[in-house]
Each structure stands twice: as C-alpha cells, then as structure tokens.
Write a protein that binds this DNA or RNA. Structure first.
Lengths: 342, 342
DNA sequence: CTGAAAGCGCTTACAG
DNA sequence: CTGAAAGCGCTTACAG
C-alpha cells in the first residue's frame, strides 16, 4: 500500500528530514557535485520515505534545460506511421538518447491546430533539442526552432533548404548496389519494379538502377511502377514478363513488391533463382520468409536514428556551429533468391 | 529573416513594452480573465514584435498543471507498434485532446531503464494525466501514478487489477456478431481461423464464435490457429478444408488471415461467397481490397481513443472519484464476401 | 564538502 | 479591468 499523496513531497521537506540544506539535497539528485557519503545516504533515505520525485517543471526552469529531446513523427493515420522504417528509426534514436540519460518525447501532430500548439510547446523550452522525422511543406516549425536556438536535426534530407542538419540513407547507392549484384551474378536482362511516381526514395532507387545498368552497357527500360505493396508487385511482374520473356533478374524497390513478383514468376513456371533472380529492398521480415529466401538491400536505419541523436546532442553541446549533414550507405543482405545457380 | 535570439523574450519584457503589468500580460495569454481591448492589443503587438513564446516550465510550475497529457505506447520494435489499431487509437485520442486545447505527448519506453526514467518524468508533473496503451506485467508505473494522484486510464482491460479506469472494445461480442451474421445468411458449417494461442483478443473472438455456434446448435470444432498474417490464414484454410470439405463459411480473426483464406478457397475452386462465405476482423484496408470485397467486424477504435481522452479529462477535473470503465460494442461492415447468393 | 541566497519565468488570489 | 506581491520547486554561483 503506497500513500496516496495529492501533494508530493518537495526538496525542502526531504532536506529537512535529512538534516541538510536544500542545496545539498539538490546535489544528491543532480549527481554532479560531490556530496559526503553521510549526507547522501541521509538524503536518499528521506527521499524514499517521503516518496519524493523531483518536480520536472521546477527543475527545468531553474536549470534552463529539460533533459528531454522531442521527436516529431508523422501523424497517426498517414501511411508513414505504419512504415517499418519508423520503429527502426525510433529504436536507434531511443537507444542513443537513453544512453545519455535523456527522455525521448514523441509528438504526432494531426492537424494545423496541433502543429500550432506543438510549435509553442517545443519553442517554449519543453525540450532541449528536436528531431524532425516528417515535414509538411509549409511548416514554420523549423524556422521557429531556429529562431529559439533549439538544435534541430532532420531525418532525411528536407527538400529545398540546405541550411539544416540532417542524416539520411543513400537510396540511390542502394539501387545501384542491388543492380550491380545482379550483374555480377551474370544476369543481363534485368527488370526493375519501382515505387510510386514522385516518391523520393523510389526515384532515387530507380536512378541507382539506371546508373548501374548504364555502366554495364545494359538496357534499362524494363521498368514498371507499383505502389510498394505485394499485390501491385505481382501485377507489375506480369506486365514485365509480357514486355520481355527473356528477363533473368528483377530488382524491386520493396520487399513486398519483390515477394509479389516472386510469386508471379513461380506461378508462371519460372524458377527462382535458376531462371530469374530476385532482389528486394528494406531487408524486412518478408525477405527472410519467402521461398526461397530473398536477397535485399538493407538500409542502416537504426544507425541513422543513432546518428541523428548523436548529432543533435553535439549541436546542443556546441552552440553556434553550422549545419552538419551525414549520409549512410546501404548493405546487401544476400540470400538464395540471387545466389543460387545462374 | 527572423532574429536568432538565444535568450527568448520574457513576459516581463513584453509587459514593459506594452506598458502594462506582468499580471495583465499574463492574463492576455492565459485567456481566462477579462482584459481591456486596449491592453490586449498592446500586449499582443509587443509579443509579436519580441517573438515572445511563453516558457512552459515556468507556466507549469506556477500554475500547477502542464496542459499536456502523456500517452504511453508500445516500444518501437514490438509488433504492436505496427498494428493498425495503434494509429487509429492515437487519432481518436489526439482529436479529443486537441479539441480541449491539450498537447498529446507520446512515450515509447524500450528498456527497463527507459521505464524507470519515464516514471520519474510522468510522476514529476510533466503531464496532467496519463493514458496507458501498453502494459508490462511487472510495471510499477500505474501504482506510482496513483500515488501521485495523476489520473490514469488504460486502453484495454488490464489483467488482474479491477481498481483502475479503462476503455475497451468487446472482442467477444465482435466474434459473436460475425458468426451470427453468417448463420443468418443460412450458413451451417462454419469454420473459424483464430489468432495465436494465449493472445487475449484472439481468445475473446474465439469465445464469441463458440457462443454463437452453441446458441444455434451448430458444431464449433472447426477451428485452426494462425498468427494473424495472410500466409498463415491461407495455410489454416487449407487445413480446415482437409478437415471438412463441407465448410460453407469462414470467420477469421483478422482481415489478413481472411484474405489468405479467401485466396486458398479460390485456388481450390470454391466460389466466394456462393460456395463459402468469408468474414474478417478489423475492417482494415485489406478487407475492401479483396476480390470480392470482404465483410468484416469493425471495432470503434477511434471512439475508444476519444472515450479514453474524455474519461481521463473528467477524472482530472473531478478528483477522488473511483475507477470508471467503459466497453464499446462492434459494428459489422458488410460486403460481397458474405451477402451474395448463399 | 556545505549552506544562504538569488533567481529561473510565470500565475493568481487579493485589494483596489 | 488592473497591479503589487507572494509563491510555485528547484539549481547554482559564491563564499566558506
């Protein structure tokens, strides 16, 4: 049975109970300055007895910092919210912040009014730094934060502005690596299933595909667009086979689409990888679950999260430094769908 | 070009610039008390000119409340994080809080250390109320919040404790409604594809299925367990058909599984709904996308979120009231997979 | 290692 | 409708 105290104990009460000054008690909790063993123990005992929990608002006000970092994520309901990239990013960010003893605080504004309120909240000193995982075109948030001197780092290169700090993964290099791998395996008629028109990562991966094909002097016009989902990948594969029955490899811009493509190939009697090699993108759970298991491009998303956190903390520590940028390269996760008999 | 001010303007400066007292300036921003048109305008002008943003920490400390509500969501990386229920719940919660002018703050602790820090954070007065969407068995968070007198509402009935406030949806009623619908359509040999053993919602839906079948004096032993995913639903359907080729309807505990089941049925030459009717659960995007479109059980998840927010706010307003509980019933979203020729 | 004291930026009875 | 004043609970030079 805990006491139900509607008026929490204050530092003052703890100090008095421990027979020390408020300053000494404070030092015990902030953990910075040296305090004698004796005083420390007395304070800790008193705190436990009184059920003391520091008042964060008072602490923030007095210390001028909140020991927490805000992370703005997409609105719930946007497809980005269900993208497996989001949890991986948050895991990386959370790990790094946690290691520094900082609280990760998430915001998911879903209306202009929310965004307005969020601006006040963040600019009002509730957090020491901000990580932006999403951005609406018209956002005034970045400039407000800048005006307040609150360190901010973007996840992904924001369009337009170059005067900001961001960490991104290299989708073009990913597309190139996937395609080069297929070429190295001796494939020559390579098709690509791309994502939706106008979607940035999709465009970058397509560019990478084209680049690798051009470098190898191979035709790069076997391209179909789909919506990143499994079924659309299946249909795209059928269209591709109708365009050319000589296709011996496919690079899809998502694992889901690659899985759909693999299905279509097998239904139509092509063996994977013997007749057609298949490589996906994201190295998601889907990739490992297909029959045969599927090669895929793995983006270092957790690393991206960690680097974002690290970067924003270093910006917070070293004021007045210019924008910093960082781009992380992909890795290949190779499995049976591309490395069997060719 | 905004000024880059590392030392934000204070209320004091705004008041002085506007030629009023700090108290009057404060009243303009808190919006409660009456202020003369003249004073209001002067303060607002001064605030705009100085780029004033209220300091949240100071405000919280002085006012004794933070105007924000914490929501604890599953850790990123848990499968629950990618569950479409989460965004729907957050949307409902966010809408309701937003309407009351409150900031929704999300927390996603991913380690015992995080949880520890979060307890301090929440108990330390950073938020006025807490919504718990997830719960680890050993959590001390609820009792800590209780001891601090911070109103707390659970999403979903927590196991064990009854002395808490929660809002839940009725999974058993959902299972019953789906099954009764099939029976009303004249189906008699009805199979069920359930979720994983030991998972609460799955168990409740199964109970609802059994109940409806018993009430109609029909056999209810055609049950296979799967993992909520599409492929597992497909396999489960194949097993069910092997058990009985006379099955004329299937109720699956998720749309994904139902979609897989529908696929298996069609591959094996059964027409949907003519030979076999299919109904899913969740009324997700998948349900509308199948061929034919699929009937499904729709849980009022957004409503659940809204009710959670409403409940916790009313608890915050009316202190010292006992726990309140609320359970919301399901609806059926009927489509061609169950209502064609029988 | 410790304490007295000033101060962080706001809100809110209280008196007018 | 307005202002002077106390106070929210903590941190942190400063002096010892």
């Amino acid at each position: 049975m805990e006491a139900v105290s509607r008026t929490p104990a204050t530092l003052d009460q703890v100090a008095r109970a421990a027979g020390v000054s408020r300053a000494t008690a404070s030092r015990v909790f902030s953990g910075n300055s040296a305090v004698s063993q004796e005083a420390r123990r007395a304070v800790e005992r008193a705190a436990t007895e009184l059920g003391y929990v520091p008042n964060s608002a008072a602490r923030s006000l007095a210390a001028g910092r909140s020991e927490s970092v805000g992370v703005v994520v997409p609105e719930p309901g946007s497809r980005l919210f269900l993208d497996p990239v989001l949890p991986r990013l948050l895991r990386g960010i959370g790990e790094e912040l946690s290691a520094s003893g900082l609280q990760m605080v998430l915001f998911s504004p879903q209306s202009p009014a929310d965004l307005q309120r969020l601006e006040q909240y963040l600019a009002g000193g509730h957090v020491d730094a901000v990580l932006l995982l999403t951005l609406h075109e018209s956002d005034t948030l970045p400039s407000r934060l800048r005006a307040r001197g609150i360190p901010t780092v973007f996840g992904g290169r924001p369009r337009g502005s170059i005067e900001v700090s961001f960490v991104d993964v290299d989708n073009q290099a990913g597309g190139r690596a996937a395609t080069e791998h297929l070429i190295e395996q001796g494939r020559r008629v390579i098709a690509h299933i791309s994502g939706p028109h106008g979607m940035h990562p999709a465009g970058d991966r397509l560019q990478g595909f084209r680049e690798a094909m051009w470098n190898a002097a191979l035709r790069s016009d076997l391209v179909e667009h789909a919506d990143f989902g499994r079924d659309s990948g299946e249909l795209a594969m059928e269209r591709l086979l109708a365009e050319s029955h000589r296709i011996d490899a496919v690079f899809a811009a998502s694992d889901e689409m690659a899985a759909g493509a693999m299905w279509a190939l097998q239904v139509l009697g092509r063996r994977v990888p013997d007749d057609v090699a298949v490589i996906g993108f994201d190295d998601s759970a889907v990739a490992a679950a297909t029959q045969p298991p599927m090669s895929s491009v793995r983006q270092p998303i957790e690393d991206m999260g960690r680097e974002m956190a690290r970067l924003v903390l270093s910006l917070a520590a070293t004021r007045d430094v210019g924008p910093r940028q960082m781009i992380l390269g992909p890795e290949l996760a190779l499995r049976a769908s591309t490395i069997g008999a060719g």
